[in-house]
Design a binder for these strands. Structure first.
Length: 439
DNA sequence: CACGCGTACGCTTCTAAGGT
DNA sequence: ACCTTAGAAGCGTACGCGTG
């Protein structure tokens, strides 16, 4: 047995063969041969790599070919497996409908083995496709190399059993995955609601309320105030250091923080660039201090991070504001949570003008009004949120891990079933169980 | 002239479309 | 049938200009 093959072992009664002996492969064709009229009143999907997802699904194509267009293209029959072969290599999907494709897709029409079984085999061969593609300008898996790839096949009856088993088992796993994904979405919504609730209503629900008079805040406890960033906060962005270029970045020296260094609400010092002392000293207003609160203002806006355990002198790159409390009106941890709330995102949305480029202008930011309790209450709210958020984060992380485990399991299950590592009796008894449950 | 805003530009990655 | 090119998209970065 070939040790460099995608299957390390298969059952002795499996036949080892080459892709070309069990299928016809047709390549897609060149779009240049098509013109406008070929797309009008389309009747058949024109598939491109983008229509194939990483998890083996075929999305509906935007473009369809007309009767005239189809004459110029090659029609791929139903139940063929489409494999990306130029540029993106190895993404694949089973097409239940007749389709046409561009030249980046090779379609495998199984003639000697079960079409579904063939699809499952190709799923296992994703790495094989990559391995045998040649990198010219973009990667290309040509038809000949593809045809010569080794495949295996058991008896027709066993092929059918494997397909039935996998179809049923995989739909179970997919259901689990999608419900876990929904669960995460729900928890994220809960997290947002919890934060917003805490920074606008406080922790005591029996307290008397008043109208804040601010659209994005709503009612607040009677003893709270409304504050404005402008009057409570020191805000500075990049100032007075034109011409800082990336070739000035060095390995040592003062740290330079950008938005990409924000990880989970704190600055991750690991990947920070460094700049010279001179550059650091050039812009005193944006030299950072421990506990400063940073917020991104260009591109991704409103991403937040606290400066914790600052390892040395640090300064801001462009695209970020540094903030710190004036006259001890609030604690940064509280403002951190407030700016994470739905109130702030709603405020940004209402202030967004027609401009296509996303920016948080300093003017907009400093005019943000927010609910402000006493320092003690800020402390307890922050503490509560730090705690709750940590727990929620752990739950979400656990579910994320479960999802990736399920995906791994999904893949290895296909591999094991296809290569015959799962006994036929085992598959049959599983299918009987499922049958019983359905009735 | 310094500041700070607005945006042009450049890098990377990916994908569609041409060319031989 | 295979290979090359160009354009789109995403995302920062840092340049240039109006203004006080």
């Amino acid at each position: 047995m070939d040790e460099n093959c995608w299957y390390d072992k298969c059952m002795p009664d499996f036949e080892v063969s080459k892709l070309k002996y069990v299928s016809d492969i047709i390549t897609g064709n060149t779009p240049s041969k098509l013109n406008e009229s070929f797309y009008e009143n389309g009747i058949i999907d024109w598939v491109k790599p983008n229509n194939i997802t990483d998890d083996y699904r075929l999305l509906k194509s935007k473009d369809k070919l007309s009767i005239k267009g189809v004459r110029k293209a090659r029609v791929v029959p139903r139940n063929s497996t489409l494999v990306c072969a130029i540029g993106t290599i190895g993404k694949l999907a089973l097409s239940e409908e007749e389709v046409t494709t561009n030249q980046q897709i090779n379609s495998v029409i199984f003639t000697k083995i079960n079409k579904k079984y063939g699809f499952y085999i190709l799923v296992c061969m994703e790495n094989e496709f990559k391995k045998y593609s040649n990198k010219v300008v973009v990667s290309i898996l040509n038809k000949t190399s593809m045809e010569n790839l080794k495949i295996i096949s058991p008896s027709p009856i066993r092929q059918e059993r494997i397909c039935l088993f996998l179809d049923s088992k995989l739909s179970e796993i997919d259901f689990l995955i999608s419900s876990k994904e929904k669960q995460i979405k729900l928890l994220e919504e809960q997290r947002q609601a919890m934060i917003t609730e805490a920074v606008t209503k406080g922790l005591n629900s029996s307290v008397r309320m008043k109208d804040s008079g601010v659209e994005w805040i709503g009612e607040i406890p009677k003893h709270w105030e409304i504050a404005k960033i402008k009057y409570t906060t020191y805000v500075k962005g990049r100032i007075g250091w034109q011409g800082l270029r990336s070739d000035e970045f060095i390995d040592d020296g003062p740290y330079l923080v950008t938005g990409t260094n924000f990880k989970n609400g704190i600055v991750d010092w690991q990947d920070c660039y460094h700049i010279s002392e001179d550059r650091y000293n050039e812009a005193v207003p944006i030299q950072l201090k421990e506990d400063d609160l940073l917020i991104t203002k260009d591109g991704t806006i409103g991403k937040l991070a606290l400066v914790k355990e600052m390892p040395g002198k640090t300064i801001l790159n462009s695209g970020i504001f540094v903030t710190r409390p004036l006259a001890n009106k609030y604690i940064n941890n509280y403002l951190y949570w407030n700016l994470n709330s739905a109130s702030f995102s709603q405020y940004i949305r209402t202030m967004e003008t027609g401009s296509t480029i996303k920016h948080l202008y300093q003017e907009t930011f400093v005019n943000y009004s927010y609910a402000l309790p006493s320092l003690e209450e800020q402390e307890s709210i922050s503490c509560y949120l730090n705690n709750k958020n940590q727990k929620l984060g752990n739950v979400i992380q656990n579910i994320t891990i479960q999802i990736s485990k399920l995906k791994e399991y999904r893949h290895s299950l296909i591999h094991e079933a296809v290569t015959g590592k799962i006994a036929i009796e085992e598959m049959e008894s599983y299918l009987k169980e499922v049958d019983k449950d359905d009735n």
